[in-house]
């Protein structure tokens, strides 16, 4: 099975090609340069493998949560590629990619993934690693102030949760205050990476969870209802 995954939901921009479990990746932390980087990354991965887009089985992308514009860049690129090459799409959580990366690289099976959501909030998800080596979400993904994040598994705060993502960089203090001994360590410099989307995408694809290009849409978590009371995002006249 062959799949291509991308993620631009944070300051990091990445693309990965997954060929029957073997993965190659392009990765760069480059705020506001995703539009310049992402297609050349994809082109070079395919050229190196000697593959055409149409030879892939599916595409995958980090569908958020994350920066609104960044999430839409990955989404729009994947929509264009999927429509053009007639391929299905697997949208994968960028928080899951973050947690999967921590497990893959740090060997931590219990991960609290946090992406800085600005204006005093984090995108948040707690993940446990299953038998098959894939992280699975506990409860649901949310956006909330760091002091309000849900305590992971209230009956079991045995202290071996690992924090991952730049939410842990920006809000280390309030998160630590909230979670106490449940958290042993964290890495605030981690970003979601396309290579860690791949294993999830391959699994989801095989379980029939791929969608058409049009149905591949972002998950923002912070939605219209949330920002009607949000003074940062109000009216501007159309500039031209």
């Amino acid at each position: 099975m062959k799949l291509l995954a991308i993620d631009t939901s944070t300051d990091a921009c990445s693309a990965a090609l997954w060929l029957d479990g073997e993965v190659r990746q392009r990765y760069q932390v480059a705020p506001r340069e995703h539009g310049q980087l992402i297609l050349p990354m994809i082109e070079s991965l395919l050229a190196e493998a000697g593959l055409a887009l149409t030879q892939l089985d599916t595409l995958a992308f980090g569908r958020g949560p994350g920066g609104f514009t960044g999430v839409r860049i990955a989404n729009s690129v994947i929509q264009g590629l999927a429509f053009g090459a007639n391929l299905p799409v697997v949208p994968i959580s960028s928080l899951a990619a973050l947690a999967q990366g921590a497990y893959a690289e740090m060997g931590t099976p219990r991960v609290l993934a946090a992406i800085d959501a600005r204006i005093g909030e984090v995108y948040w998800g707690a993940y446990l690693t299953a038998e098959n080596g894939l992280v699975t979400l506990v409860d649901q993904e949310i956006v909330c102030p760091p002091q309000d994040v849900p305590l992971p598994l209230a009956d079991d705060v045995s202290g071996d949760w690992f924090g991952a993502g730049n939410g842990w960089h920006t809000y280390a203090q309030p998160l630590k205050a909230r979670l106490g001994e449940a958290v042993t360590a964290w890495d605030g410099q981690r970003y979601p990476q396309a290579q860690h989307l791949c294993t999830h995408a391959a699994d989801a694809f095989q379980r029939g969870l791929a969608v058409s290009a049009e149905q591949a849409l972002p998950v923002y978590l912070r939605d219209e209802v949330a920002w009607k009371k949000q003074p940062l995002l109000v009216i501007t006249p159309p500039p031209k």
Partner: peptide
Amino acid sequence: LLVGAAIGRSLAWAW
């Protein structure tokens, strides 16, 4: 603009 640019540029490349 980025939505149209990203879809348009990617679509052209795929085609």
